[in-house]
């Protein structure tokens, strides 16, 4: 009797201590996950703080003219970001112009046209294109694509547009092979899989009933795509395109190889130019003097600000679509 009471008492106390122990380990685990999650925020904040503090000297020295000035002269220590910003925006815009229609085309092919047996292999091939590291695009662009472009395509373009008013300025000059246009073409191949993957996923969220109803009234594939599917999934397609634009703006290695790294603004798309990321990649380790280094970090800050806005818009558009289709989708 005494024994039982004792053991009961000890079992109660061991149970309560076990509960306490579980409670503690539970709280500890929760705290671990929370602090890891907060670390993500800390990394983001750290990036902002380090970029702003690093670029302080340059922004203080040059003021707002840093954004509008296109002189980049390490010898006289005069730096302006305009040529690099211009090159970044132009090469990315051109790449988007090429990649968006192609990417949507691929998505349409995959969702509507592709024979079932080919669907998976074609989809995987396009996704592998996204997996190829950017340095590979760079070396391929430099050794394979640029020479081909210089010898075959560029002379033809220069000839063809030689007498067309606006075009002759855009495509003027000797065929260098490397330049803004070449960089934009390589970029467009790189971002193509991002656009087509997101677009395909978004197309698949369109309720089949809508499409079947349209086909039932006698619409052609083109009419179903342009009047039903695209309007329905517009936010997602734009979101996917913005995501790809974010990639294109910040892409470094593929561009650095083929853009030519010339710090001046040239009307001709065939002439060498530069981008923010290519400038940083090429010059950072060799930069001498605080102003030079600080100016390069300021370039990084500008790039981060631009991509942040673009990516934020992309998130918002994709999220809005996700909410509408009931939480499922990319």
């Amino acid at each position: 009797m005494v024994d039982m009471a004792l053991s009961e008492e000890s079992s109660v106390s061991s149970r309560s201590s076990a509960l306490k122990r579980f409670g503690r380990s539970d709280a500890r685990f929760r705290l671990m996950t929370l602090s890891s999650a907060l670390l993500v925020v800390a990394i983001f904040a750290g990036i902002m703080v380090s970029l702003i503090s690093g670029s302080w000297l340059a922004l203080h020295t040059f003021g707002w003219s840093f954004l509008t000035n296109s002189v980049w002269n390490p010898v006289t220590e005069k730096f302006g970001a305009f040529a690099a910003i211009y090159g970044t925006l132009v090469s990315s815009a051109l790449a988007m112009l090429i990649a968006v229609p192609l990417g949507i085309g691929i998505a349409i092919f995959l969702t509507e046209l592709c024979p079932r047996a080919l669907k998976r292999p074609v989809g995987i091939a396009i996704e592998l294109l996204a997996g190829v590291p950017s340095i590979i695009y760079g070396i391929w662009g430099l050794f394979v694509f640029a020479p081909f472009f210089q010898q075959t395509v560029e002379p033809w373009i220069i000839d063809a547009f030689g007498n067309v008013p606006v075009m002759q300025d855009l495509f003027a000059g000797p065929p260098y092979g490397i330049g803004t246009f070449t960089a934009a073409l390589i970029l467009s191949i790189m971002i193509l899989p991002f656009i087509s993957a997101v677009t395909r996923d978004v197309f698949e969220t369109v309720p089949p009933m809508l499409k079947e109803a349209a086909y039932g009234t006698g619409c052609t594939t083109w009419e179903v795509m342009s009047r039903i599917v695209l309007p329905f999934s517009r936010a997602g397609v734009v979101g996917g395109a913005m995501l790809a634009l974010g990639r294109a703006l910040g892409e470094t290695m593929a561009v650095t190889f083929v853009i030519g790294n010339a710090h001046h603004i040239n009307e001709s798309l065939l002439a060498p130019g530069t981008t923010i990321s290519a400038t940083i990649a090429n010059e950072f380790t060799e930069a001498l003097g605080d102003t030079y280094v600080s100016s390069l970090i300021a370039l990084g800050l500008i790039l981060f600000a631009i991509t942040f806005i673009v990516l934020a818009v992309a998130q918002i558009m994709l999220k809005s679509l996700e909410r509408r289709s009931g939480g499922k989708s990319a």
């Binding site: 993500v40 910040g250 790039l303 991509t307 990516l311």
Partner: peptide, 9 residues
């Protein structure tokens, strides 16, 4: 955002 931020940054 970090997932797609430029790696050079």
């Amino acid at each position: 955002i970090l997932l797609s931020a430029p790696s050079i940054i």
